[in-house]
Design a binder for these strands. Structure first.
Lengths: 250, 250
DNA sequence: TGTATTCGTTATGTATACAATAGCGGGGAG
DNA sequence: CTCCCCGCTATTGTATACATAACGAATACA
């Protein structure tokens, strides 16, 4: 009992899944590269069975791809894959916003959303925005999107949105990070915040179509800016997940 | 070597996954019921490791739910879950149609779609439609939706649509089957076919918004009719997947 | 010298053994 | 008679052993 040190608070499968996902997203594992189970066993500390379960989950998540002859490889994404994923999530979030608006949301339920809005307003007051403030923004923005998604009260939809967010840069924090290096970053943040304001207003007034439209526009903005940011890669080489994007233009 | 008869043409994992999915969808396993691994091993013929991989995949598919204390249970769906799933898929297919329209599709690529259209036209000519013809319709309709999805040329989107179709009644064939018992079945099929015709026209003329709108309307029609069909359950008790729907109104 | 075939090694798919936990039933006490 | 506690059993999570298939290298033959 002194020899084996096992953390019983978390399953080996989850541990392996987290570790491997981190390795993929951090670029330790190159896209197209075959993942060695044995190597994964060594780096994660779990044994083969939990590692395999983690690999299956990561494949379903979309980060890995099964190889016909056996095993898994890290998936590579084209720039279009990324922008499609963002638009996809925007469409889904639009549906969520519409559901929230049509089905009605109490003032109390809307409160967390307004809190995020106010907190971000506070952050955006400083020009230019500090690094710390930007970090807070990323958190608050992610929270805003998560809460909005929940307001749809539709488990299948929430589930799909979560899935769509699993791809690199497709999560609310993911693409904001990518845009941080742009000179127009602050303006983008301000516009995005305006979108947030409008969607709350639309939900409050039960304007489903308007709520949906603004969320889709929100995603369009993100797509446009991500494209822009990817043009000057020099500014954001620090982002590890960038390694997952195929450089060759299709 | 003579003793053990193993089919090498298909992996045990896939075999177990297919068998278990069939058991779930056919109602052999009741929703809320904990799935016994041992029992699954017996019914599928695979050993525990492949069975567990299959269970993980089915959980990711949305048919199973992990139990915190361990193991999996069959998920139960509310009527709203189902209709939301259909609308969800409709939204996704709308996006696919828009992508196809905006990005352009050659006449050659549109051919399979038109073939389905023509074949279905042929089927719908007979009144009332025969059981055989209806069965053909289900196949052709599924093919139409699959081809349309492919025309988006967006792997992430295609993937998501496939995922959304995994839930009971959310697939193109699934909800059509459910509606078959309705007296208005033939009219519904005719209207649906008109939708198909319009989406092809919209894609040909590169009218993205119109293509998207009609696919969403298509889903709305499906939702409405599924609701209707579920009202008179007596007509369609033959559908096994029905067991997965919670009877209690939320 | 190039190509093809064979052998060996390695990694994956599968099966099973082991360990730990959660649920359940029985027994005892209040 | 009821409630609580203890122990047992059954099932899951984990580890590992075994078999098989694929990939690579080396050698032999053309």
């Amino acid at each position: 009992m002194a020899e084996r040190e096992v953390d019983r608070s978390i399953s080996q499968t989850v541990k392996a899944q987290l570790a491997l996902r981190d390795q993929i997203l951090s670029g330790s594992l190159r896209p197209g590269e075959r993942i060695s189970e044995l190597q994964a066993v060594e780096t994660t500390g779990a044994s083969r069975t939990p590692v395999r379960m983690a690999l299956v989950r990561l494949e379903e998540e979309g980060l890995l791809e099964g190889i016909p002859s056996g095993g898994f490889m890290v998936k590579a994404f084209s720039e279009r894959d990324i922008s499609d994923s963002i638009e996809l999530r925007g469409t889904l979030e639009g549906l969520a916003a519409r559901f929230a608006a049509e089905r009605g949301v109490s003032a109390r339920e809307l409160e967390p959303l307004k809190e995020c809005l106010g907190a971000i307003d506070e952050l955006l007051r400083q020009v230019p925005i500090s690094v710390d403030a930007f970090s807070s923004y990323v958190t608050l923005n992610a929270r805003f999107h998560a809460v909005l998604t929940e307001l749809s009260r539709s488990p299948p939809l929430i589930r799909q949105i979560d899935r769509a967010s699993a791809l690199p840069f497709a999560s609310p924090s993911g693409f904001v990070m990518a845009q941080s290096a742009l000179p127009e970053a602050q303006q983008i943040l301000i516009i995005g915040q305006e979108h947030h304001r409008v969607v709350i207003d639309a939900i409050e007034n039960r304007e489903g179509a308007r709520a949906e439209a603004i969320m889709r526009e929100h995603a369009r903005l993100a797509v446009r800016n991500l494209r822009l940011a990817l043009r000057n890669r020099t500014h954001l080489d620090l982002l590890p997940a960038l390694a997952l994007i195929k450089t060759a233009t299709d």
